[in-house]
């Protein structure tokens, strides 16, 4: 998990990624794969519930983050469960930058799976940053309908982690 200040990172400019996403929506593309010199980005719409899964794969110097530096993220804006286009679907977002873990250790069962019911205090994952392990509570009541992050995935502030159906 890092922020990168690598030179020649034009292909990863946030505005450009946003434009690519819009183009994919407009033309109903399921995947695009771009390469510029040694850097490459692949955007896929094949997420578990139609969510966006930016799969970045490339030779060495890939920025792990595509959003503004976490230090600039406003403390008060930490999104927990935010309403989405579907009034009954809430999104649990990462309140911090770090590494996502679905269980307390590799040998344990995940904190939650799709179909599980959660309440506000139920721990849904752990995010590690600088060797500090933060249990993340659901902060919403409902049924998990999608897990949007993979184990040991780098997550940014605000990154969607779970979708919860609050009508269930």
């Amino acid at each position: 998990m890092s922020e990168s200040q690598s030179p020649g990172g034009e292909v990863f400019e946030l505005d450009r990624i946003r434009r690519l996403v819009e183009l994919m929506k407009e033309h109903d593309l399921s995947e695009i794969d771009l390469q510029q010199e040694e850097q490459r980005i692949r955007l896929s719409r094949s997420g578990p519930v139609g969510g966006w899964t930016p799969a970045v794969a490339a030779p060495p110097p890939l920025p792990a983050t595509m959003s503004p530096p976490p230090a600039a993220a406003p403390e008060t804006a930490a999104p927990a469960a935010a309403a989405t286009e579907d009034a009954n679907i809430a999104v649990i977002r990462s309140p911090m930058v770090g590494t996502f873990y679905s269980s307390s250790n590799p040998k344990s069962e995940p904190f939650v799976r799709v179909g599980d019911h959660v309440d506000e205090e139920k721990t849904v994952c752990v995010i590690e940053a600088m060797k500090v392990f933060n249990e993340i509570p659901a902060e919403v009541r409902g049924r998990i309908v999608a897990v949007l992050a993979n184990d040991e995935e780098a997550v940014d502030f605000g990154k969607p982690l779970f979708k919860v159906d609050t009508s269930k």
Binding site: S6, P61, P70, V97
Partner: peptide
């Protein structure tokens, strides 16, 4: 911020989790 700084061949990395 306490992040680890590593100067690679491709630039300066600020590592939060490593």
């Amino acid at each position: 911020e306490g992040r680890l700084l590593v100067r690679t061949a491709h630039g300066l990395e600020r590592l939060v989790s490593a």
